Computed example of a mutant assay.
Amino acid sequence: MSSWPTIISTIIVTVAFAVFAVLSVVLAEIDARTHRIPNRLVLPGYLVAIALFVAACLVGAPWVTLLRAAVAMVALFGFYLALRLLSRSAMGGGDVKLAGLIGLHLGWLGWTELAVGAIAAFVLGGLYAVVLLASGRAGRRTRIPFGPWMLAGAWVGILLGTALILGIPPAQTA
């Protein structure tokens, strides 16, 4: 019987990440098309994730995991806010708000996942920009939506974070 809280908390966390997966697809598509990340989707995303993570803790997940997620949320939000303050044209306000939501999810999993996800966003976005520049489809002043790359990087961190750091093939991480 003692495993029921673990099973229930795992289900709740799985739901949180499933919601984030759907939100990731929707937000990436919207940002790619409009260069906007709507508050009406991101802000409720925070509420849903926090509610589900708190519920998971109430039924047995470690509270320290929630604390780490909160710290990661603030840290990634703060990092993106600093980038925005350094250059308003380089980072949009929607990216800053999205960063906190991404940090919350990556932080739930661990510091390694947070680091991998955060770095992967810039690597993927940078590679995309290089391809656009090299192909002549973009110039130095071309605006490129970063939200899709933030979300892709987040999912690299979620799915492969520890495996990438440890050099473990993905099939062995399960």
Rank of each mutant, 00 (worst) to 15 (best):
M91V: 14
I119F: 13
R137W: 13
L166K: 08
G93M: 12
F122I: 07
L166N: 11
V13S: 09
M150G: 03
F53M: 11
I11Q: 06
A75G: 00
G45V: 05
A134I: 10
S9T: 12
P62K: 11
Q172D: 13
H105V: 08
L41K: 06
I102G: 01
A115Q: 08
V48R: 09
L98V: 08
P148H: 03
L58N: 12
V116M: 00
Y46E: 10
V48S: 07
R84H: 15
A174Y: 15
L43H: 14
S89N: 12
L58C: 14
A163P: 05
L47N: 06
L133Y: 11
R84S: 08
M91R: 02
L23I: 03
L85R: 04
A75Q: 02
A90Y: 05
A49M: 07
T112K: 06
A138G: 04
A28C: 14
G93D: 06
L127K: 13
R137I: 11
V42A: 01
F77P: 02
A18L: 14
W108I: 10
A69M: 04
W111G: 10
W108H: 06
F79Q: 00
L151F: 04
M1A: 14
T6W: 03
N39Q: 03
A49K: 03
M91W: 09
V131A: 11
V116I: 11
I168H: 06
A69K: 01
F77R: 01
W108M: 14
V116P: 01
V130Y: 10
L76G: 02
A16W: 01
P169S: 08
A90N: 06
P145F: 04
I119W: 12
L133Q: 08
A163D: 12
D31N: 11
L66M: 12
P169V: 14
W155T: 05
A28P: 10
P148M: 11
T6D: 10
A174H: 14
A99E: 03
F79E: 00
L98M: 11
H35S: 12
Y46H: 10
L160Y: 13
L133P: 00
R137L: 15
A49V: 03
L127T: 04
R36C: 01
G103P: 02
T14P: 00
R68T: 14
K97A: 05
G161L: 05
L106M: 10
E29N: 07
L114G: 05
I30P: 05
L124E: 06
T162A: 11
W149T: 00
T112W: 01
L159V: 15
L159E: 13
V131Q: 09
Y80C: 02
V22C: 08
W63T: 15
T65G: 12
P5I: 08
L164G: 07
R140L: 15
P148Q: 04
G153E: 07
